[in-house]
Amino acid sequence: MIFRNVPNKPLSLNLGGELVSLSRPLVMGILNVTPDSFYAGSRTPAPEQIEARVHQIVDEGADIIDIGAYSSRPQADDIAPDEEMRRLASGLEIIRKLYPQAHVSVDTFRADVASRCVREYGVQMVNDISGGELDPRMFETVADLKVPYILMHMKGTPQTMMQQTHYDHLIAEMLYYFAERIARLESLGVNDIIIDPGFGFSKTLDDNYRLMNRLDEFARMGRPLLVGISRKSMIYKLLGTSPDESLNGTSVLNTLALLGGAHILRVHDVKEAAETVKIVSKTLQSGD
C-alpha cells in the first residue's frame, strides 16, 4: 500500500457559524428522499422512512446529513423544481424537528432550490453535481448565501453524462475544470469551496480507477476534497455483483480515498465509513 505524501495543511469549514475542523476526515450520510435512486436500499420517500433514516445516520456517527431529492443516476427522470422542493421540504422538516442542530447539506443543482433550503430550513452547505453548469445563477446564489459549496465535476446532465466520457487527458482536464471554477467562485467572495471529482459521472470504469489512483493531485489543490463512491457501478460492474453487494468494495475504496487525501466521505453506510476513518486515521497518526 502506498501512503500518499499529501500536504497536511489545516483545513476547516464554516457550517452555520461553527468552524468545523477537517483534521479528522468527516462522514457525510446520504438521505435520498427519492423513489428512484440507483441503490434501492437508500430510497426513503415516505415520512416514516425518512425519520428512521435520519435517526440511523445520526446514531451511526455522521458529521453531515446530505439530503437530495433529484436522482442523479444515469438516465434518471427529470423532475420539476416544485416537486424537488416539495420532497426536500418534507425531509428537512423532519431533520429540523429531530435534530435542529444537525449539519445539513442539500444536494441540488438549482439555485432557487438551494436558496430556499438555506433560508427556510437553515441548511449550511450546497452540494451541486453540475459545478454550476446547469443553473448559471448558482455561483452568485451561493456567494449571496455565504455557505460552503461542493463543486463537482460532471459533463452534460444526469440524462446524458454517460455519452460524454471522452477525454484527451482526464486528470489535466479535470484539474483545469476545478481551477477555472474556483477562480470564478473566489472572485464572487465564496470562501469555502469543496471539490468533488465526481466518481461515476461522465467517466468510464477505467477512468474512475485512474482517478482514484491519482486522487492526491486533487488533494494538492489546497481545498477540502470530497469523495463519493458509495456502492457505485465502478464497484459492482468490476466485480460482477450489484449495489446491494457493494459494501465491502465501498470500504476498500473509501480507505484508498482517505490515503489519497480525502477530507469528506459521502456514503450510504455511515457506521462502516466512520470505522474506516477511525482505522485509517489511527494508522496514519502512528508514524514509524
Rank of each mutant, 00 (worst) to 15 (best):
S281F: 00
I235W: 03
L22A: 05
H169R: 15
R137I: 00
D216Y: 13
T255E: 08
N191E: 15
V267I: 08
G41M: 07
P224M: 01
S23N: 14
L11Q: 13
I171V: 14
R73I: 09
D63A: 08
R210N: 13
R119H: 06
D78L: 07
T34V: 09
I195V: 13
L215S: 05
S90F: 06
T283S: 01
G249N: 03
L88N: 02
P158F: 14
T34H: 08
V33H: 03
G156C: 06
Y70F: 14
L22S: 03
Y209F: 15
R53D: 04
G122K: 12
E133G: 08
K97H: 11
R96V: 01
T165L: 02
H169P: 00
E84T: 09
S115P: 00
S246A: 15
P74E: 11
K9C: 06
M125A: 06
S251A: 07
N5A: 11
G156D: 03
D112I: 00
V267F: 02
Q124T: 14
M212I: 11
Q164L: 15
N5C: 04
A111P: 01
S12M: 01
I79Q: 03
F199M: 11
E173Q: 15
L258D: 07
P25V: 03
H55W: 14
A102I: 08
R181M: 07
L211D: 03
L15Q: 10
G249I: 00
N248W: 12
R119S: 09
E272W: 06
D144P: 01
E51H: 02
D112S: 12
T255S: 13
S286Y: 04
L225N: 11
Y39R: 00
L188V: 13
I195E: 06
S21G: 12
Q285M: 10
M28R: 05
G29D: 07
N248V: 14
I129A: 05
T255N: 04
P197C: 12
A179T: 14
M85A: 09
D288R: 15
G200Q: 09
K203G: 02
D206E: 12
L225V: 10
A114W: 01
V147I: 10
F218C: 08
M161L: 14
V6M: 10
F3R: 11
H166P: 00
A69V: 10
Q101N: 15
R96L: 01
I182W: 05
M28C: 10
I94T: 07
I95N: 04
D66A: 09
L15A: 10
M1L: 14
V33A: 03
G249R: 01
G200W: 05
I64S: 07
G287M: 14
N208Q: 01
N127E: 02
L26K: 11
T241D: 05
V190Y: 05
N127Y: 01
K203P: 01
T241W: 06
V270N: 11
T250I: 02
R53M: 04
N5H: 08
M212Y: 05
D59C: 09
E140N: 07
A40I: 04
V104F: 10
G222F: 11
R184L: 14
Y176C: 13
F199G: 06
L215G: 04
R4A: 15
I171M: 15
R184P: 01
G261P: 08
Y167C: 04
N191K: 15
